[in-house]
Computed example of a mutant assay.
Amino acid sequence: MRILVIDDEADQASINTAKMGNPQDEEEIERTTVNRLIIDLVKGNDCESNRSNAQFQAMNYVSFTATPYANVLNEAYRDSLYPSNFICNLPESKEYFGPKVIWGSKADDNYNGLNILRTIPESEMKELKLLHKGSTSTLPTEFQKSIAWFLCSAGLIQELFF
C-alpha cells in the first residue's frame, strides 16, 4: 500500500499541544490524539501504536499552512511531525490577505497597509472604561462609528448573498 497524507491547515489539530515531558525520554512525551495518530500512521503503526500488520510500500506526509512559523510550533524531537528534511516557503498569491496587507510593511514598499484601522482617542478610552464599569451608558463617538460601519457591511453582505 502506498500512502499520501495531505494535512491542510497543519497548524490546527495535527500539532501536539499536550504538555511535554523530558524531551530526551520519548516515553515521557504526551501527545494529543490527532498528533499521535498521524505519527503512528507515518511510522507504520496501528491506532494503538503497535507495528501495523499492513506494510506500506511508501509513506508520505505533506503539511500545508498559511501561518508563518506554524511548523515551528511542532516540537523538534525524534518522533515528531516537524519536517526533518525541508520546509518550502511558497510565494504569496495576489489574493493573500494577512497582517502585512492590513498593517503594512516597512521592509516592502508594495505593502502600505489598508485604510481600515482606527485609533481610539485617549479621551474616548476613558469613556470606554466608564462604560465597562457600568458608570455610563453613553457610547463614545468612535464606538458609534464602528457599530455603524459593521451594520453597513453586514447589510451589504446580506444584500449580496441572501
Rank of each mutant, 00 (worst) to 15 (best):
Gln55Phe: 14
Asn115Glu: 08
Asn89Asp: 02
Thr32Tyr: 15
Ile6Tyr: 08
Ala76Asn: 13
Leu90Ile: 14
His132Met: 09
Ala76Val: 11
Asn22Lys: 08
Glu92Trp: 14
Gly44Ala: 03
Ile6Gly: 10
Gln24Cys: 09
Val101His: 00
Cys88Thr: 15
Ile116Gly: 09
Asn110Glu: 01
Gly104Pro: 06
Arg118Asp: 14
Val62Tyr: 00
Leu117Phe: 06
Leu90His: 07
Ser123His: 14
Glu95Trp: 07
His132Leu: 08
Val101Gly: 02
Ile102Ala: 10
Leu130Trp: 09
Asp79Pro: 05
Ala58Val: 06
Tyr61Val: 11
Val42Gly: 05
Pro68Asn: 07
Asn45Met: 07
Val34Arg: 04
Phe97Val: 01
Pro68Val: 02
Tyr61Met: 08
Gly113Trp: 02
Leu117Arg: 13
Tyr96Glu: 05
Lys129Ala: 08
Ala70Tyr: 03
Ala76Phe: 13
Arg51Ala: 03
Asn16Gln: 02
Gln24Ser: 10
Ile102Trp: 00
Leu114Lys: 08
Ile39Asp: 03
Leu130Arg: 11
Ser137Val: 10
Asp8Gln: 11
Asp79His: 12
Met125His: 10
Arg51Tyr: 01
Phe56His: 01
Thr119Lys: 06
Ala70Cys: 15
Glu9Pro: 00
Ile15Ala: 02
Ile15Asp: 00
Arg78Phe: 13
Gln57His: 04
Asn53Val: 12
Tyr61Thr: 00
Pro99Ala: 14
Val42Gln: 07
Asp108Trp: 11
Ser14Met: 07
Val72Glu: 04
Gly44Lys: 03
Met20Asn: 11
Glu9Asn: 01
Gln24Tyr: 04
Phe97Ile: 00
